[in-house]
Amino acid sequence: MLISVLRTCFLYAVLLFSVRLMGKRQISELQTSELVITLLMSNIATIPMQDTEQSMLSGLIPIMVLLVFEIFLSYLMLKSPKIRRIICGKPIIVINNGALDRKAMTELRLSTEDLFEQLRQKDIFDISEVAYAIVETNGMLSIMKKADCDFIRIKDMKLRKKENTLSVTVISDGKPAPGSLSICGMTKAQLDKILKKENLRMQDVFIMTADKNGDYTIIRKDRS
């Protein structure tokens, strides 16, 4: 039993390392190859965890080989669109200029119900609002609304707005967040000045965020 616990800890660390090395991607955005690799890895890892008669290398080696495959394949896909197309396929337009492409839907085995469900998930309840709908290689649906149904943007109204800047956490749970001051262009002296102005000590701050415009938000710690 102890061996199982130790092996599980070790394989957990190996899987975390492998997923980290494969790169960041949301589960819902997995490409075909990544989905296959993730499923395989999780299944392979369980065998030496449960069966202590098996050598752990018999689980570890296939995981490492899959990891290497995934990284090399993603590199090849980055360099060669042809390989990417073979492995991942290509995006398919299912609504083209407001018209449903039945042939594309048949090719994708996408029923109208499935399409409507995905449109509703994008807050579109009337198909006549859609100019283009594309099924991406990861199976997600991308939508472009017709011009008269789309949101009005600042530039459409010819207005000018102060540029958005990234707001970063500079204090988290009473402690300074490392490296964040330089991102929002603030110095330690400026931070101290703000805290002094707010009559606060750093340990009294639960969260403080700041941006390059000099705007900041402070959430104090509860004193209950």
Binding site: I61, V65, V68
Partner: peptide, 21 residues
């Protein structure tokens, strides 16, 4: 750097496999 890491992992895998064999 991921490619280098993957290459290093591949070398380790090959070494362990050969040692096992």
């Amino acid at each position: 750097s991921r490619l280098y890491a993957a290459s290093a992992v591949l070398i380790i895998v090959l070494a362990v496999t050969a040692a096992g064999f």
